[in-house]
Design a protein around this nucleic acid. Structure first.
Lengths: 293, 293
DNA sequence: TAAAAATACTCCATAGGTATTTTAT
DNA sequence: ATAAAATACCTATGGAGTATTTTTA
């Protein structure tokens, strides 16, 4: 058995898609197929029910997934502790992250990290995915956190978290929008989105394309440079925004915003760590493993 | 990472010898060296202190060993449960085991197994290693347990337990023997050993050879056909026996026998499972995994 | 000098890729 | 017709072997 094979299985099981797993793990789809087939051969049982393109876990698959999570956790702990032993866990760690991650994901992680490793001096560069990758290549940062869409050669990506963009409206405005809408309804609605060049708009663009809609078809009232601006704007205007779920947990909890489901148009993205290829170990890896647990 | 690599490391760490690990896992010694080197490269740290031929675990090695045991346990559980899911866990399982194993190791395991799987009908064939292997090849048994010395082609061995032969004398006899003796002292002592052709005598023979002593140099009072006979004989005669530690736990606890250490002459042997190659899965594997946990 | 580990080399199995076909919606 | 999974085929790397050298007790 080999741990990458387990990671492949885990990814397929979580995404319920060979293709998505391939994207997430940066390998080809046939490679995924083969790994799963090898596993199925090894255990002499099917792990997925293939009903055409729909796949579902079998009992054996569910059992494997449980153990899988456990074993992969163990591996992570092992890596982490070996890393602690190797490094002196002091010095500087220069991070770079794209906007959503830097604003909504990292703060609690950074707090936890500095509490655990007070000797490490952290810095955080803010920029879009491209800028973060360039900073990495120029040696201005040690570890990047980006939306893993465009894979640059020479960089090594490892999956971190999943993110979902959702349409939201104010609960107090006068805009009449049902709980669920169809992608075709979007062009008729007044929208506030992030600016061109942002990862967020990219994801929206690609999701629309799947339904034959172009960004230019939309009725975009305004492009704003940050999610915070959009959220605040929404509370004072009768329009709809599309933002990361991770940015609106408080607003949802307090009932100031509500999600409008766009039927069969998931706006999914993966957050990844990025490092220079061959830069194994060191504080960067310590941080990665710490953030994952 | 790959689980066989971890098994290699575990075996080296337990035996504190690359060569012994190679024997235990049925691979060449250079293969072991390479695996350890790969691990050391991966973690960027030495796992073993090499003081010439003596090796010892480093801090990193100790840490890895801990995690290793844990991860390999997980793998075993996984295999076991996948096995339960695949098999109906009923039917017949025909075991074969060589004497020491059948008498001193298996009984509690068999009891535990039938409690857990009452639907399985167990049978146990008794014989020396060679006989067990022949029974396997002739399809008369499904799984063998032998002293893994002579590797037959077409059979697949997996390590089970380690065993040690020790010299013992009665605590009540008149034989004067110090706590520790040298191998050279053995020919002068009256001995009771197992019969020719037994695995036990084989091991003793090879251990003696290491010190340039032949079996025929010994003063063997008697060759007996079972360990039980030897133990009972010792309690009524002033001589020394050489038997498996696994056979004398009660006698040691009750103070009827005592161990005489033979300086720098370990009489070590590995117990292995044996199966026909390509006979993966099934009740045999269920039993193997059950016995290991 | 003998025993253990390391190195050198050769060979094959496997993992990964691209291109293509099959299948189900 | 389209999108996902499976298959075919090729290549390169890594793991295993044998033979040999190095090291140290």
């Amino acid at each position: 058995m080999n741990d990458f094979r387990l990671k492949v299985f885990q990814s397929v099981a979580r995404n319920l898609s060979f293709t998505k797993a391939a994207r997430e793990l940066c390998v080809s789809q046939p490679a995924i197929t083969k790994h799963v087939q090898e596993l199925e051969a090894a255990y002499g049982m099917r792990l997925f029910e293939r009903q055409g393109s729909r796949i579902a876990l079998t009992d054996a698959g569910r059992l494997l997934l449980e153990h899988c999570e456990h074993i992969l956790d163990d591996y992570r702990h092992l890596e982490f502790e070996m890393n602690l032993l190797r490094n002196r866990c002091a010095g500087e760690l220069r991070l770079g992250a794209s906007t959503t991650i830097a604003q909504y994901v990292l703060p609690p992680v950074l707090a936890r990290f500095t509490r655990r490793f007070p000797q490490v001096h952290l810095s955080l560069l803010n920029g879009n995915s491209r800028e973060v990758e360039i900073a990495l290549q120029e040696g201005r940062i040690d570890l990047g956190l980006v939306e893993g869409i465009h894979r640059q050669p020479g960089l090594k990506y490892t999956p971190f978290l999943q993110d979902e963009l959702v349409a939201v409206v104010s609960t107090r405005g006068k805009l009449r929008v049902p709980e669920e809408i169809m992608p075709g309804d979007l062009p008729r609605l007044p929208l506030v989105l992030r600016e061109k060049g942002s990862g967020t708009l990219d994801v929206i663009g690609r999701a629309l394309e799947e339904h034959g809609i172009k960004l230019s078809d939309l009725h975009v009232l305004m492009h704003l440079g940050s999610t915070e601006s959009i959220k605040l704007f929404l509370e004072h205007a009768d329009c709809m925004g599309i933002v990361s779920v991770r940015s609106i947990s408080r607003e949802l909890a307090e009932g100031r915003l509500r999600v409008v489901e766009v039927e069969s148009m998931p706006m999914h993205r993966d957050f990844c760590f990025v490092r220079l290829q061959g830069q194994e170990g060191g504080l960067a890896q310590t941080f990665e493993l710490f953030a994952m647990s």
